[in-house]
Amino acid sequence: MNEAQQVELVKTFSNAFGPSGFEQPVVRAYRDAVADFGTTTIDGMFNALTVLNGNTGKRPVVQLDAHADEVGLLVQAVRPSGLIKFVTLGGWVPTNVPAMAVTIRNKRGEYIPGVVATKPPHFMTAAERNAVPQIAEMSIDVGSSSREETINDFGIDTGCPIVPTVDCQFDAKHGMFFGKAFDDRIGAAAMVNTLANVAEAALSVDVVAGLSTQEEVGLRGAYVTARKVEPDLAIVLEGCPADDTFEPDWLSQTRMKGGPMLRDMDTTFIVNPQFQQFAADLADELHLPYTRAVRTGGGQNGAAIGYWKGVPTIVVGIPVRYEHSAFNYTALSDFQTSVSLVSALLKRLDAATIASFSSVD
């Protein structure tokens, strides 16, 4: 893919509506983007599995993974006033939610604009001004004046999904994307670009790409795709939270324009050290920048896939600032470097190399 195609791919994926459990628009965009590279099937959870053209069924299987869903909200009920009570899909910091512009997909499949309602300061007590807002106390306003209007005219009721309203932009001068859902739409786009890079390459492995769903609510889709694919090795492409705006340089392990983050540990996962070092050595050989990270929080699909059969698994993280909020930044150069590294890994892997990652001698 050339740079213009990469930019449009990322923007398309970022703008797609797809909170956990409602990923259909993202999956459609993915299916269309990979149509020339393999055969894609979609299951009842909306997990999409792409079997790369040229797979033989006789070589080790490498599973690529990225997740389709974004953190979002879900209508729980409509209040008598017409305001909408909601719950979260994925991890939100409550202070990031008030006054956020949102889009609700109603029961008819229409997209309705709204806003997370906030009380004007004129009406707040001193205690209210200093209180930490709670999700359970918040409401969304779509301009309705009654419960009946919200349900009947706007078509919004229990179970309707919600995402932030954000239009992805690309700053060509600085090589930066500004948009929503780069966790993990940037990884999904990178997986598509990787398939494009290796579609006609002479590989020594079979490749199956899994665009999994419901990662933000418990890695659920990847548990399913791992059992279907039964890989011998896995590479997870994940938008990972950048720490360069709030950590000192010596502790910053995921920085913008610093290349992909190779994750050694998080709360769900400890990486296979041989595979991790193989990836790091290859990045060094190719002069690709990267960081290594030991995290005390977070989790990702590497746990769901790697712990299914104990296969060697690494996580190639693309740095994203301000994950799990409405507005994110991510760098085109980090996207491109991640694609280059994963593409090179697929071209280097073979049965003997994969077997070496399980050796204890």
Rank of each mutant, 00 (worst) to 15 (best):
M1S: 15
N2M: 12
A4V: 13
T12Q: 14
S20M: 13
V26M: 15
A29T: 13
A29N: 15
A35D: 10
G38E: 12
G38P: 14
G38S: 10
G38I: 09
T40Y: 13
M45C: 04
N47M: 06
V51S: 14
V51Q: 14
N53V: 04
R59A: 14
H67M: 08
Q76L: 03
V93Q: 15
P94S: 12
T95S: 09
N96T: 10
G109P: 13
G114M: 07
M124G: 01
A126G: 02
A127N: 07
N130F: 00
N130D: 06
S146E: 13
E149H: 14
F154V: 09
G159A: 03
D167N: 09
F170A: 05
F178S: 02
A181M: 02
F182E: 01
R185V: 09
A188R: 04
A188V: 15
A189T: 05
T194A: 07
L195A: 07
L195Y: 10
A201S: 15
Q214G: 07
V217R: 05
A226R: 01
I235M: 11
G239D: 08
P241L: 02
P241D: 01
A242W: 01
F246M: 03
M256H: 12
K257T: 08
P260R: 01
D264A: 05
D266A: 07
N272Q: 00
N272S: 04
Q274I: 00
L282R: 04
L286V: 00
Y290S: 03
V294N: 06
V294H: 11
W308Y: 07
P312L: 00
P312T: 00
V315I: 15
N328G: 00
T330D: 05
L332D: 01
L341N: 07
L341Q: 07
V342L: 10
A344V: 03
L345K: 01
D350K: 04
I354G: 02
S359L: 02
